[in-house]
């Protein structure tokens, strides 16, 4: 079965009807890899690429609202530094032309670069159901375990809303100059009011935030000593593993390095008064 609806409402109905039987298909850059690798993959697809307005990104009250079908290529042009840089580190041009933000959130890989960037700017995820309607989940409640999320099998990710005016910084460590799977990636966002979010990929079963490190900055600002304390805290908060891509000890150390580096970067960019919590 392959469904190719034109309207979001139709797609939601199909999803409500077939649930986990049918796999939502955005750009296919995750799912078709699985199909190519093994003979037992998903068989039924709900193609979201023809949905009206599903790929649009619009600006609304100081926020961006990106439809679930917005591609990395589109996100790469936004003026939210961490998100656009993260998007541009995903694959090559052909992958960025296909891969979507809903796909990134749906796969919910701990290495999901887009997820890390969105986590650092307090994005809201809009999940929709044919009859129950929409619900909006703050991104920090969205990831529930290794490749598990708050998305229910009869829902679709219809939109992502995130602020346009946060200052952000991004760094991804990989083994080469492009098309990397992260070894560690880090995004830090700072709201105009000085709230700081420190997010990591590849150091836990899900993308994660270093909340104690955030609390240190919230309390003590961006002085050298508090940045150092936040970096030390981040290293303790993460739970990386050894795998074929890197060692846990390297990943842990990099969480400190990147916290330090990106917080300094934000401080440098910051208007003089900012950097202190209110």
């Amino acid at each position: 079965m392959f469904l190719q609806p034109r309207q979001v409402a139709e797609a939601l109905e199909a999803r409500a009807k077939y649930g986990a039987e049918i796999t939502p298909l955005g750009g296919g850059t995750d799912i078709v890899v699985v199909l190519n690798r093994q003979s037992t993959g998903p068989r039924h697809f709900l193609d979201l690429s023809r949905l009206e307005n599903y790929a649009a990104i619009r600006r609304e009250n100081g926020c961006y609202v990106a439809g679930g079908g917005a591609t990395f290529a589109q996100l790469g042009r936004l003026e939210v530094k961490a998100l656009s840089q993260a998007a541009m580190t995903v694959g090559g041009a052909a992958i960025r032309n296909a891969g979507t933000i809903a796909g990134n959130l749906g796969t919910a890989s701990p290495a999901g670069d887009g997820c890390v960037a969105l986590l650092a700017i307090d994005a809201d995820i809009e999940l929709s159901h044919a009859t129950r309607g929409r619900r909006v989940i703050p991104i920090h409640e969205y990831f529930t375990g290794f490749r598990r999320t708050a998305l229910v099998a009869d829902e679709l990710i219809t939109a992502v809303r995130f602020p346009a005016d946060w200052r952000t910084a991004w760094y991804k460590i990989g083994k080469r100059g492009s098309i990397n799977i992260s070894i560690v990636c880090c995004a830090i966002g700072m709201s105009p009011r000085g709230n700081v979010r420190i997010a990591f990929g590849c150091v836990a079963p899900t993308v994660m935030r270093a909340r104690q490190a955030e609390a240190i900055i919230a309390k003590d600002g961006l002085a050298d000593a508090s940045i150092e304390a936040a970096a030390q805290s981040a290293m303790k908060e993460v739970a990386p593993i050894d795998d074929h891509r890197s060692s846990a000890s390297y990943r842990r150390a990099m969480c400190g390095v990147l916290t330090r580096r990106l917080l300094r970067e934000l401080r440098q960019d910051a208007p003089r008064a900012a950097g202190r919590a209110e």
Binding site: F2, Q4, G28, V32, D47, A94, I95, N97, A98
Partner: peptide
């Protein structure tokens, strides 16, 4: 007009 990896595209998506 856009580059795509044809190995990751399912045929019906090309309708």
């Amino acid at each position: 007009g856009r580059a795509l990896n044809s190995c990751l595209v399912l045929c019906p998506q090309m309708q």
